[in-house]
């Protein structure tokens, strides 16, 4: 299955009321490189994007993971995937118990309207994700300035 299918699949599943069933497809090569085939469950991760971005060159993004961030139970890493960017794996963030709080804020480039997915890897080896749709409007004029 191609990446596009996986994200489309995830998006389709998310639209269902039984969203608990929705899973990021573990067979997707990108995600498999990360999870080694382990299930990726919806939950714990919250991805915040504006619903509409005036310019895809700089879109604010926030990822939080519900975790006590203790040595025994913490987020090890957070992985960001784009459905439409030429480079689908936008960023990976590695944290640990010393973070105290599992939250990352940044600004990303998005090549058009799409769904963005964040996958978190926890210290117990489990994977969790959230996905958010965003509409990216095109700029008014192609100015050569």
């Amino acid at each position: 299955m191609k990446r596009r299918d996986f994200l489309a699949g995830a998006a389709g599943a998310l639209a269902l009321p039984g969203a608990a069933l929705a899973q990021v497809d573990p067979r997707d090569p990108l995600v498999r490189a990360l999870t080694n085939g382990a299930p990726v469950r919806k939950g714990k991760v919250t991805l915040v994007l504006p619903q509409l971005a005036d310019n895809g060159n700089s879109v604010p993004i926030r990822i939080t993971v519900d975790s006590p961030m203790t040595p025994a139970d913490h987020v090890k890493s957070i992985h960001l995937y784009s459905e439409r960017n030429p480079v689908p794996n936008m960023a990976n963030f590695y944290l640990g118990p010393r973070a105290g709080k599992a939250e990352i804020n940044s600004r990303v480039r998005l090549a058009g309207s799409q769904r963005v997915t964040a996958v978190a890897k926890l210290s117990d080896g489990s994977f969790w994700y959230d996905a958010a749709p965003i509409v990216v409007t095109l700029s008014a004029c192609l100015d050569e300035s």
């Binding site: 700089s58 100015d143 300035s145």
Partner: peptide, 15 residues
């Protein structure tokens, strides 16, 4: 954001 950088007023006028 369109420029992804800083620009002068004249650059804006040219745009």
């Amino acid at each position: 954001m369109e420029w992804q950088t800083m620009g002068s007023l004249e650059r804006r006028l040219r745009a």
